[in-house]
């Protein structure tokens, strides 16, 4: 191997606002670094080929697939996972709406769903249900049938935009 190629990589980045320094195998993807090295098990590995969205986390403010990103590529990045987003309160309204509307069953997809939903509801506008469905279409949920998730996100988007929620009627 050429001396320029490394099999282990030294990294410095921030996770949930905390500085992290660690050395990881070069082939280790972000989701494994979060789960195995940093013990942040809230995000899940569902398919490891970029389709299911369970490993979706925020890198520099944007959603990424934790399984399609090598940790080695993230030197200097700012990473947020469900643990940090919970502690900061950034998605408290989304989380409350998911619980209220029962927009989760087994909960395995939920941290990824919340990460994807976060970037939609913080746009400030109220997306149509079709737009919510389209935006969330990269996150697989086997349990809910999606409607409750769409409802919860719609409620939060409307509340954030100061528009009255209209889907609470489904919660009897």
């Amino acid at each position: 191997m050429s001396e320029h190629f490394r099999s282990r990589i030294d990294l410095e980045f921030t996770v949930n606002g905390e500085a992290v320094e660690l050395t990881v195998p070069a082939g280790r993807h972000l989701i494994d670094v979060l789960r195995l090295d940093l013990e942040l098990t809230g995000s899940h590995a569902g398919c490891e080929h970029g389709v299911c969205g369970a490993c979706t986390v925020l890198v520099d403010g944007q959603t990424v697939r934790g399984c399609l990103t090598l940790a080695a590529q993230l030197d200097g990045a700012e990473i947020w996972t469900v643990e940090g987003l919970t502690e900061s309160g950034a998605i408290a309204d989304l989380q409350a709406a998911f619980v209220e509307r029962n927009a989760l069953q087994c909960g395995y997809c939920t941290p990824g769903m919340l990460a994807s939903a976060k970037t939609l509801v913080e746009s400030g506008s109220v997306p149509s249900r079709e737009a919510i469905r389209e935006h969330m279409s990269g996150n697989y949920c086997r349990c809910t049938g999606y409607e409750a998730i769409v409802d919860a996100i719609e409620t939060v988007a409307r509340t954030r935009a100061g528009v009255e929620a209209r889907v609470e009627a489904k919660v009897r």
Binding site: L40, T41, V82, G107
Partner: peptide, 15 residues
């Protein structure tokens, strides 16, 4: 048990 799941505090076997 929904509150812990939305907070990423579930404990699945792989965790």
């Amino acid at each position: 048990n929904a509150g812990k799941l939305v907070a990423g505090r579930g404990r699945y076997v792989d965790d």
